[in-house]
Design a protein around this nucleic acid. Structure first.
Length: 278
DNA sequence: AGCGGGACCTGTGGGC
DNA sequence: TGCCCACAGGTCCCGC
């Protein structure tokens, strides 16, 4: 399920295939997948994709439209969203929701089995007035470790929710999902059900360090492939082989050998070590 | 206001 | 063998 490291890997593998390419057609196969910007579709045709990049779990394609205006295609992959550039003439697949034709550059497919993912097309100038965008928390890898710890301290003061729910909250910190929340908390030695406002400064420091460490390592390993995730070249990631807790319920902790516990925290399947995480 | 939980989806896998 | 159901999870929305 694409979280920050997976979306980052997709962007890195997609960018060389689409940047500089001219859009010749856009086809929406599932209307629900295009959340907004229907009226801008015709403006895309003839435009050029100038940049593929990422913010939080969003994949963004900057487009210089045919009339010279700047547009943005924002994609949220949710759990099963995928990108792949097929040769020209390729027919849609079973779960293809949207196609961006790039002439001789091929056909960019947005596939999404569960149809939770979406695309929004908007003028670049309106990006900042989009509530989801405007309320996103900081990029965890774009601030220093102590800066991130201080940010968490400010955000979590007085919070009664558990720390896992806070890590999943994109307005507190951007890009973390269920996998990296569990892994980060394990790495920091903090139990997921701890009340966020009760965490001590030294624990927040450890958490900031753990989150940055886990996310960077996951990017180096090209993300985690549990079942569905593939990058824009069709390759699986490898970080799932380095999991400390996620998907390892009942198995023994790599650090202390205790049986890992599992349950629901913040409404999500959660695994933790009852000894290493306090 | 802040928080918890259901709805949205569809394929997979375990149990009977 | 085949059917049924729980489960996976990011975000929005609703109700307490």
């Amino acid at each position: 399920m694409p979280e920050l490291p997976e979306v980052e890997t997709i962007v890195r593998t997609l960018a060389p295939q689409v940047e500089g390419q001219r859009i010749t057609e856009v086809t929406v196969l599932m209307q629900r997948s295009l959340q907004s910007g229907n009226e801008l579709l015709s403006l895309l045709v003839g435009g050029v994709i100038t940049k593929a990049h990422r913010r939080a779990k969003l994949l963004l394609l900057d487009v210089c439209a045919a009339d010279g205006s700047d547009l943005v295609l924002a994609f949220h992959l949710k759990m099963t969203g995928r990108f792949f550039v097929h040769p020209p003439g390729t027919s849609p697949l079973k779960h293809t929701r949207l196609i961006v034709d790039l002439g001789p550059g091929g056909r960019l497919f947005f596939d999404d089995m569960r149809s939770f993912g979406w695309c929004r097309i908007m003028p670049a100038a309106l990006l900042n007035s989009w509530p989801f965008w405007a309320t996103l928390g900081p990029e965890p890898l774009e601030c220093g470790e102590s800066e991130l710890a201080e940010h968490l301290a400010r955000q979590l003061t007085g919070k009664k929710r558990n720390i896992k729910a806070c890590l999943l909250d994109q307005t507190i910190i951007a890009g973390i999902g269920n996998i990296y929340a569990d892994e980060g908390l394990f790495c920091a030695g903090i139990a997921p059900q701890r009340r966020a406002g009760d965490l001590q400064q030294v624990e927040l420091q450890a958490l900031a360090e753990a989150v940055q460490n886990i996310l960077s390592r996951a990017i180096q390993e090209c993300g985690s492939s549990i079942r569905d995730y593939r990058d824009a070249l069709g390759n699986a990631g490898a970080f799932q082989n380095s999991f400390g807790v996620y998907g390892r319920k009942g198995k023994s902790c790599h650090i202390c050998g205790s049986a890992l516990k599992d349950g629901r925290v913040a409404g999500r399947g959660t695994v933790w070590c009852p000894v290493c995480q306090q």
